[in-house]
Each structure stands twice: as structure tokens, then as C-alpha cells.
Design a protein around this nucleic acid. Structure first.
Lengths: 349, 349
DNA sequence: GTGAAAGCGCTAACAT
DNA sequence: ATGTTAGCGCTTTCAC
């Protein structure tokens, strides 16, 4: 079924059918109804490719997930506490606003060409990138993309510096400094003086910020910054386990540890348990993300809640605005976080 | 950049450029290389809409997730132990085979028109449906869809009955009867005689099969089937909590409970803990799905592992075959499951 | 082996 | 207010 047939049946021309479909103002109610009736009767849906070719948008947004996980890890994306709720939120909010969402996973910077290709083939009107580390490939994307692009968790200043003048970008972050300082403050208020950090990757904006703020805040409280208490967990299980085991072997434990994501916090808890070290009695632990697992594990995990849903919503809405208005430039957004106190921390007596 | 410009630069016609792009056999190596060089130099990518309009496929597969969760539950999809790894696997396998994946969430049968619309607008070449309950709307989709469609977790006989003669369908299930009977057998081998069931929804194929097999297998072992031990958890947390609380109030507990998904098992464990009932000392629990949470919770959850990754892979591959061969008919696939024994069950002494 | 030309289904500028 | 027409960028017969 094509618009021409609808036109014939309704006794009008293709253009009129098109006008009805696209809600043009200059078509009388009577004609509109007549055409709509035929459209509905025949369940006519305009061919997307034809519309796009004739100048309309695809109404499709591409979501590109940069996974830090190994390609062969079966939980690589959904096991990632970060992505799950975010994808969910993007699909939901996107669908709600009338967009189709195309999801891609990128396991390595060398696969960045997929982003460019998807744009070049005109499959999407806009894109969302999440989880990327800072590297040549992504910088190249930022430097030469003029399609609307939202980047989650990236340094806005870098984007501003790199992006073309006619770029339409939006950067969405959560308040990592606030989140981390809340963690430190909370532990200090519980009497902790020896606080360790399970850091993520500082090639990641949030990873860098959290570590940096940790150090600043520790100093702010006049505490000492022990080098052996800064553990390289790289946001993943394997590195975390190795780092925590090494820490335990060194025989000198901090009284509390802040992990830069929940997965590391949980891995650490498991290693501690294996070694007979009790959480929170012997060591307090704080996570970051507030992933679903945080409420399931025992003791339940005190962690920083990132407003993924809201971030996704914001990203989609900004892109939507950009697509409608054609406005150009960089838009920076920072959403609020919240420390969720559960059972994994204890007062230092 | 369009094919015409490439043609001009390479000193050939548009048709030749097209032949090169589409790997036609009758292009001499020399010409092919000449054209390819220009294509690469200018990073030319053919416009998808134009190709589709001219008769090519979209190379896009639609993934439709029927969520049993409430629209306002922030973990509705990724919190669903079932979907997460599956979406992941579909995107991965799909991308690997050169397909783009469009993800949609359907919260209510009344939103089924989205599936039809996406096909009618010619946005996708094939679709995958997962998590649907049996109802008028989905039956209508099955009855009138002639596009390649894979349905995960659905009664193949029903599909065969409903589908048009020229349909291209594939149904992918896991071996629910085997999974459930393995659970019962295992508990029986541990000496349990009073076994309860946290059932899902029997409008779901797997939900029905698991409950049915549970009853069959209980009888097979000559055990009694106590009505009060069949709890309606509906696959979700809230119903499970209510059902388990009611069970506890009745003062008569089974010595073991099999839940038809991990989420219900975990919810039940939490309620038991709140009431001072120990797992597995007082009651053994088995889940179903082997979701990531199963290894995190304490005691870790004995559960049936569903090969989501393999199921997704199978679905994509079958669709891919169908798209390439244009073969018609119904293809039924059933993948194997495995009982993963962890800590949540104990011998009945 | 390669080019010319028709056509895919739609939108939009133009004409009426 | 509505019809006519010229593309949008590509693939694909059909000639040569």
C-alpha cells in the first residue's frame, strides 16, 4: 500500500495525502478526515526510506555503549551496573518521544568507525555515547561530527575544545565531586581516618573526577593519603580481586574503602569474606552507582545513586530539542547524585 | 557525498560504483580497485534509505521486549533477570552478523501496534519478540505477519496454528520441562517431600510449562501436591512478597520452594530472612534463570541456567538464514538448560 | 564490461 | 485548497 493508492481511493492527490500525514495546516478538516479514514481503513504506514530520502528525518537515535568488559564475558553489558538501567531509560524515553532506538556495543576504540558509519549511512538523526574513555578515536569522532550528539560522562571542556564550530553537542554528567565528597564526609563522620579507594579508570571522566575528589577531600579533612590504600580496580572484577588480595597480603588494612562503582565494591566484599574479614565490622565499604545488586548483597551496600533514568531522559530531550530547532553549540548538563546509606559501613569506635 | 560524485572522480558511471559496492561479479579487478580507492579516500557510505527504496534490505532487526514490569519501575527491563543478557546477546550477535538492532519495550498488549508499525514503515527486515504472554493482540500479530519473525518463549503449536501459510517464523525455547524436573529431582534427592512452587504467569509459555512439569514431577515421585504450597508470584517481586508472607502466616511451611524465576526466589529469601526463617536451614530455595544476582546473594542461589546468549544467537542466525534464502514456514528450536547447584538448598535430615 | 535510464515512495516547491 | 512535477540517492534492467 502506497500513498498513491490511498490518494486514489480517497479521491485526492498524493500531495494531499502527504499533507494530511505531515499535519499541514492548510488542509480543511473535511478533506483531512476523508483521507484519514482511508489511511486507517487500510492501515497505511508511509515508507520510512521514501520519507527520509525526500528530506524527512529517520526519527531514530543511535545508542553507542562502550563496554569495558571483555567481549567474551556473557554479562558484559548487562552485567555492567552502569549500562543496564541507562539503555532501558533511553529506549523508554526515546520511544515515548516518538524515536526509534538503535543500540550498538563498542568493545574497543578501534570499532569507533561504527558510529561514523551509522551517521554517514543516514540511519540515525542523532547519537548518544556512553562509557567511553578518552582516546584518539573518540576525540576524532568529537572533532568531526556535526550530527547531534550526546555524550554521557565526558569532560565538557574537552568537547568544547575539540568540536567543530557547527557541532550540536550535549554533554551529560552527574555530580561526581559531590558524590565522592559525600562518601568521604560520611566515613569521616563515622570516625574513619584510614580510608582507601578502589579507583576506576582515570581515562574515564567520572573515574578521574572521583579519584581526584577523593584525594582532595581526604586532604580537606586533614587525613593522610596512604599510597597503598589507592587500589587499581579499573572498574572491573578481575583487577579488583587482584588489588584487594594484594592489600590483604600487605597486612595493613584501611578501616574503610570507597569503590568507584558497585561492581568493585561487591568484588571486594567477596574477597574480604573469603579471607574472614568482616564487612562492615572490620572494614566499611561504599560503592558507586546504586545498581540493583546493591540491595541484594548482604550487607546491603551503601552507595552513591546516579540518576541514570534522568540522565537518559535529559539526553534524549536535549537531542530532541536540537533536532527540532537546529540550534548549534554545546550544552552541558550536570545532574545531582545522592548517597544512599545502607548496611555496609559502621562507626569506628 | 553521493555515488554520482564517486563515479565522476573515478571516471566511471554510477552503475559501476553500485556494482562495486554490491560486489557484483562482472566487474574487473582493475575497475573495482580504482573505484574502491576513491570510495575509501572520501569515506563514502551509501545512503541507506536510497538503497532500501531501490530494493535492498534495511539490515535492521527489531527487538521487542514485553516487560512484565510496571512502567514506573526504574529497573523494569534491566532489573528483569530475563531480558538483560538477552538484549545484550542480540545486539552482539546481530552486530557481528552485520545487522543493526532496534530495541523497543512493550509494556502492554495494547502497544502491539508498534510491532506492526515498525514492519509496515519498512524500518526492519525481521523481528524478535520476547517475554510475551498469550493474548488476542499477540495472536493477531502472529496471524498476519509475513515478515520474518522470531518468537522466544512461545508455544510452537500455537504459532503453527495461527500463522499465515507464507509466514517465515521461528520459535526459540529452552527446555522448561527438563529444567523444572531437574529441580524437583534434586530436591527429592536431598530428602525433601514437601515442596512448594512460586509460579510465574501461566499465560506465558515457560510459566505454564514450568508449573505443569512441577505438578507432573511431584506426582511422579509419589509426593503430595499441597494447594497452599503453590504460590502465585507472577514473576514479580510484589506478588511474591505478598504470597510468601501469606504462606508464613499460615504457619505451615514446605521444606523447599522452587521459584519460576530468580527474582521471585530472591524476593522470597528476603521475606524469609525478615521473618527469621533461615535459607537453606529451614527452607531450601531454587531459582530459575541464573541471573547475575544469583551469585551475589547470600546464600548464593541454586538455579536453572537458561542459555540466553545461545538463544539470541540462534534467533539471529535463523532470521539471517530466512532473510537470505527467503525460505518459508516454521522453525522450532529448543535449547538445553542446566541446573546450577549453589548454596540455597540443604539436605533434609 | 559498462553506461543510460527507469523507478523505488515520498515531500515540497510551484502552479493553479 | 489542491494538483502537478521535480527530485531525494540508489539499484537494476536493458542496450551497447
Amino acid at each position: 500500500m502506497k500513498s498513491e493508492e490511498i490518494a486514489k481511493i480517497a479521491g485526492v492527490s498524493r500531495s494531499t495525502v502527504s499533507r494530511v500525514i505531515n499535519n499541514y495546516s492548510n488542509v480543511p478538516e473535511e478533506t483531512r478526515e476523508k483521507v484519514m479514514k482511508v489511511i486507517q481503513e487500510y492501515h497505511y504506514e508511509p515508507n520510512t526510506s521514501a520519507r527520509v530520502l525526500a528530506g524527512k528525518g529517520t526519527d531514530t537515535i543511535g545508542l553507542f555503549l562502550f563496554s569495558v568488559h571483555d567481549k567474551r564475558n556473557p554479562f558484559r553489558v548487562y552485567g555492567n551496573s552502569y549500562f543496564g538501567p541507562f539503555v532501558d531509560a533511553v529506549v523508554d524515553t526515546g520511544n515515548y518521544k516518538g524515536y526509534y532506538i538503535m543500540v550498538h556495543t563498542i568493545y574497543d576504540p578501534s570499532e569507533c568507525w561504527r558510529i561514523r558509519q551509522t551517521f554517514s549511512q543516514k540511519r540515525i538523526d542523532a547519537g548518544i555515547i556512553i562509557g567511553t574513555e578518552r582516546n584518539k578515536e573518540i576525540e576524532a569522532i568529537i572533532s568531526d561530527t556535526t550530527y547531534p550528539l550526546a555524550i554521557v560522562d565526558y569532560d565538557p571542556d574537552e568537547v568544547k575544545k575539540l568540536m567543530p564550530k557547527d557541532a550540536k553537542m550535549v554533554v551529560v554528567n552527574s555530580d561526581d565531586r559531590k558524590g565522592m565528597s559525600a562518601c568521604v564526609d560520611y566515613l569521616v563522620s563515622l570516625g574513619h581516618k584510614q580510608i582507601g579507594l578502589l579507583e576506576g579508570r582515570d581515562t574515564t571522566y567520572s573515574g578521574f573526577l572521583r579519584k581526584d575528589e577523593f584525594q582532595k577531600r581526604i586532604r580537606h579533612h586533614g587525613l593522610s593519603l596512604e599510597k597503598e590504600f589507592i587500589l587499581k580496580g579499573e572498574f572491573i572484577r578481575s583487577s579488583t580481586e587482584a588489588a584487594v588480595k594484594k592489600l590483604i597480603k600487605a597486612k595493613k588494612l584501611p578501616t574503610a574503602i570507597i569503590a568507584c562503582n558497585d561492581q568493585m565494591a561487591i568484588s571486594a566484599m567477596e574477597v574480604f569474606k573469603q579471607h574472614g574479614i568482616r564487612v562492615p565490622d572490620d572494614v566499611s565499604i561504599i560503592g558507586y552507582d546504586d545498581s540493583p545488586a546493591a540491595t541484594v548483597i548482604r550487607p546491603s551496600l551503601t552507595t552513591v545513586r546516579i540518576p541514570f533514568f534522568h540522565m537518559a531522559q535529559t539526553a534524549i530531550e536535549s537531542l530532541s530539542d536540537i533536532l527540532e530547532s537546529k540550534e548549534t553549540g554545546l550544552q552541558t548538563l550536570q545532574l545531582d547524585v545522592e548517597l544512599v546509606i545502607r548496611e555496609s559501613c559502621k562507626k569506628r569506635t
